[in-house]
Amino acid sequence: MIISTERTESDGTATVTLEGRFDAHETADFRRVQDELEADGFETIIVNMTQVEFVDSTALAELVRGMKRARERGGDLILADLSNPVRVILELTRLDSAFQIV
Protein backbone atom coordinates (compact mmCIF):
# COMPACT_ATOMS: atom_id res chain seq x y z
CA MET A 1 0.00 0.00 0.00
CA ILE A 2 1.13 3.52 -0.71
CA ILE A 3 0.65 6.16 2.01
CA SER A 4 1.12 9.81 1.27
CA THR A 5 0.39 12.80 3.48
CA GLU A 6 -0.48 16.39 2.86
CA ARG A 7 -0.43 18.88 5.71
CA THR A 8 -2.48 22.04 5.95
CA GLU A 9 -0.88 24.02 8.76
CA SER A 10 -3.51 26.78 8.75
CA ASP A 11 -6.36 24.66 10.10
CA GLY A 12 -4.36 21.88 11.74
CA THR A 13 -5.70 19.29 9.34
CA ALA A 14 -3.69 16.63 7.57
CA THR A 15 -4.83 14.49 4.70
CA VAL A 16 -3.50 10.96 4.47
CA THR A 17 -4.04 9.32 1.10
CA LEU A 18 -4.01 5.55 0.95
CA GLU A 19 -3.67 3.53 -2.20
CA GLY A 20 -3.96 -0.21 -2.74
CA ARG A 21 -4.81 -2.91 -0.23
CA PHE A 22 -5.08 -1.84 3.40
CA ASP A 23 -4.58 -4.93 5.54
CA ALA A 24 -2.69 -6.18 8.56
CA HIS A 25 0.58 -5.85 6.67
CA GLU A 26 0.04 -2.11 6.48
CA THR A 27 -1.46 -1.08 9.80
CA ALA A 28 1.91 -0.43 11.47
CA ASP A 29 2.82 2.09 8.76
CA PHE A 30 -0.56 3.79 9.07
CA ARG A 31 -0.17 4.04 12.84
CA ARG A 32 3.30 5.50 12.46
CA VAL A 33 1.97 8.18 10.12
CA GLN A 34 -0.83 9.05 12.54
CA ASP A 35 1.65 9.18 15.44
CA GLU A 36 3.87 11.58 13.50
CA LEU A 37 0.98 13.84 12.56
CA GLU A 38 -0.30 13.94 16.12
CA ALA A 39 3.17 14.67 17.42
CA ASP A 40 3.32 17.58 15.01
CA GLY A 41 0.05 18.95 16.37
CA PHE A 42 -2.43 17.84 13.72
CA GLU A 43 -5.64 17.02 15.53
CA THR A 44 -7.83 16.11 12.60
CA ILE A 45 -6.77 13.62 10.00
CA ILE A 46 -8.66 13.09 6.77
CA VAL A 47 -8.06 9.67 5.28
CA ASN A 48 -8.63 9.71 1.54
CA MET A 49 -9.60 6.23 0.37
CA THR A 50 -10.42 6.77 -3.29
CA GLN A 51 -7.71 4.37 -4.38
CA VAL A 52 -8.16 1.72 -1.70
CA GLU A 53 -9.27 -1.60 -3.17
CA PHE A 54 -9.76 -3.60 0.00
CA VAL A 55 -9.77 -3.11 3.76
CA ASP A 56 -9.50 -6.13 6.02
CA SER A 57 -10.71 -6.44 9.58
CA THR A 58 -7.38 -5.53 11.10
CA ALA A 59 -7.23 -2.35 9.06
CA LEU A 60 -10.80 -1.49 10.02
CA ALA A 61 -9.86 -1.95 13.67
CA GLU A 62 -6.87 0.33 13.13
CA LEU A 63 -9.08 3.03 11.64
CA VAL A 64 -11.47 2.75 14.59
CA ARG A 65 -8.56 2.95 17.01
CA GLY A 66 -7.22 5.99 15.19
CA MET A 67 -10.62 7.66 15.19
CA LYS A 68 -11.08 7.12 18.93
CA ARG A 69 -7.63 8.44 19.67
CA ALA A 70 -8.16 11.52 17.52
CA ARG A 71 -11.48 12.27 19.21
CA GLU A 72 -9.92 11.88 22.65
CA ARG A 73 -7.51 14.63 21.65
CA GLY A 74 -10.30 16.88 20.47
CA GLY A 75 -9.91 16.12 16.80
CA ASP A 76 -11.24 13.45 14.49
CA LEU A 77 -10.27 10.89 11.90
CA ILE A 78 -12.49 11.48 8.90
CA LEU A 79 -12.86 9.13 5.97
CA ALA A 80 -13.08 10.79 2.58
CA ASP A 81 -13.87 9.85 -1.01
CA LEU A 82 -14.41 6.19 -0.31
CA SER A 83 -14.01 3.71 -3.12
CA ASN A 84 -17.04 1.53 -3.63
CA PRO A 85 -15.50 -1.61 -2.09
CA VAL A 86 -14.53 0.34 1.03
CA ARG A 87 -17.96 1.93 1.26
CA VAL A 88 -19.67 -1.46 0.96
CA ILE A 89 -17.34 -3.02 3.53
CA LEU A 90 -18.09 -0.18 5.96
CA GLU A 91 -21.81 -0.64 5.37
CA LEU A 92 -21.70 -4.39 5.92
CA THR A 93 -19.66 -4.00 9.09
CA ARG A 94 -21.96 -1.12 10.13
CA LEU A 95 -18.96 1.09 10.69
CA ASP A 96 -20.30 3.67 8.27
CA SER A 97 -22.23 5.19 11.14
CA ALA A 98 -19.20 5.29 13.43
CA PHE A 99 -17.07 7.51 11.21
CA GLN A 100 -17.59 10.93 9.78
CA ILE A 101 -17.51 10.27 6.05
CA VAL A 102 -17.17 13.06 3.52
Partner: peptide, 10 residues
Amino acid sequence: VPTIGAIAAH
Protein backbone atom coordinates in the same frame (compact mmCIF):
# COMPACT_ATOMS: atom_id res chain seq x y z
CA VAL B 1 -17.37 -9.78 5.95
CA PRO B 2 -14.79 -7.51 4.27
CA THR B 3 -14.28 -10.20 1.63
CA ILE B 4 -18.01 -10.42 0.97
CA GLY B 5 -18.10 -6.63 0.72
CA ALA B 6 -15.29 -6.48 -1.82
CA ILE B 7 -16.78 -9.25 -3.92
CA ALA B 8 -20.29 -7.83 -3.77
CA ALA B 9 -19.13 -4.34 -4.73
CA HIS B 10 -17.23 -5.60 -7.75
